[in-house]
Design a protein around this nucleic acid. Structure first.
Lengths: 167, 167
DNA sequence: CAGGGAGTTCAAGAAAAAATGAACACGGCC
DNA sequence: GGCCGTGTTCATTTTTTCTTGAACTCCCTG
């Protein structure tokens, strides 16, 4: 286990950080970002860039980019601290809000680019290989639609209010 | 666009392959695996290892491992060809079956390892920092449960039979 | 408006992941 | 048994991705 020097270190805190490092990597998200979120998650008080650098012993660049990313998916919320010029944040703990952020910032754009790519193929293909790949293209279209439809559903499912769910 | 030499190459076919390369990378799956699935998907006839190597111009090792992976998630189905000793496959085109394969082979194990890690933290923590991180641990437990619950719904949602869905 | 704290950027180096290909099974078939 | 076709393994190389840190931009403050 990493030995994050300085500051209120603890076995449990570091284990929580390790937990998020794993989770992040399962999502294809860099280790450093998992560490950063884990640190915020494990810490009650709002933290600033400096705290992250100090407690995780990572570079300013990594910390800055990591915080930016986490903010972009709403995994960190700005917290104003009077008399301190630095930006402070606290971890967002609503799974749904984070999932929504991820969906909006990463998954949706990916789906959109896929859809574009598909449209380009279709335009290009109609002119040349008529009928040749129609089945395959139809299958992909079906998939795209389903992917689009499932997202709001996942979001709702992860929502805080546990409502009865019927499919 | 790659110029996959040999065999029935075509603009559209290669565009479909490119589509799957992108999709794969969005999932953190290696490019070569996206290519392989794309090739199978775009090809009606069953293909064997050799065909993959020849048409995609990739190494035997990559092709072998890629096919193994795709089989493990049920993205390729074995197809028997009389009089040919080589193993042939066709692409699975049911999104649900592939998703189920991915869930069972990759996501579930990941969740399980997370759950183990969490349990270890809890055991370790009870003895030492009583109450210190109880809120955080409770939050993680909630998340884990939701993640477990959402998977079967996603699977059902991607199912072929379009049934009315109510949340 | 000079100085300095806070945060960003990005080229270069370090680390991790994927691809390669040669060596190694395994199993028919002659 | 020896050979050949098929597929797997895994150490090495290549490619990609992540991290670092120094230079830079913005503002705020005196």
């Amino acid at each position: 286990m990493a030995n994050y020097s300085e500051a209120p270190s603890s076995e449990t805190r570091d284990a929580i950080i390790a937990y998020f490092v794993n989770a992040a990597q399962a999502f294809g998200i860099p280790k450093s970002i998992g560490e950063i979120y884990g640190l915020f998650f494990a810490t009650d008080a709002p933290l600033a860039l400096d705290d992250v650098i100090e407690q995780l012993q990572i570079s300013k660049g990594s910390a800055s980019q990591g915080i930016r990313f986490l903010r972009s998916i709403n995994a960190l919320n700005p917290t104003y601290i009077p008399g301190d010029r630095r930006d402070h944040f606290k971890a967002e703990t609503s799974l749904r809000r984070i999932a929504d952020g991820l969906i909006k910032e990463r998954i949706k754009p990916q789906l959109a680019s896929g859809a574009e790519q598909l449209k380009a193929i279709q335009n290009q293909t109609r002119k040349t290989e008529l009928g040749e790949y129609q089945d395959q293209l139809a299958t992909i279209r079906t998939w795209s639609k389903k992917a689009d439809l499932v997202l709001p559903f996942v979001s709702k499912f992860l929502g805080d209010k546990s409502k009865p769910t019927v499919i």
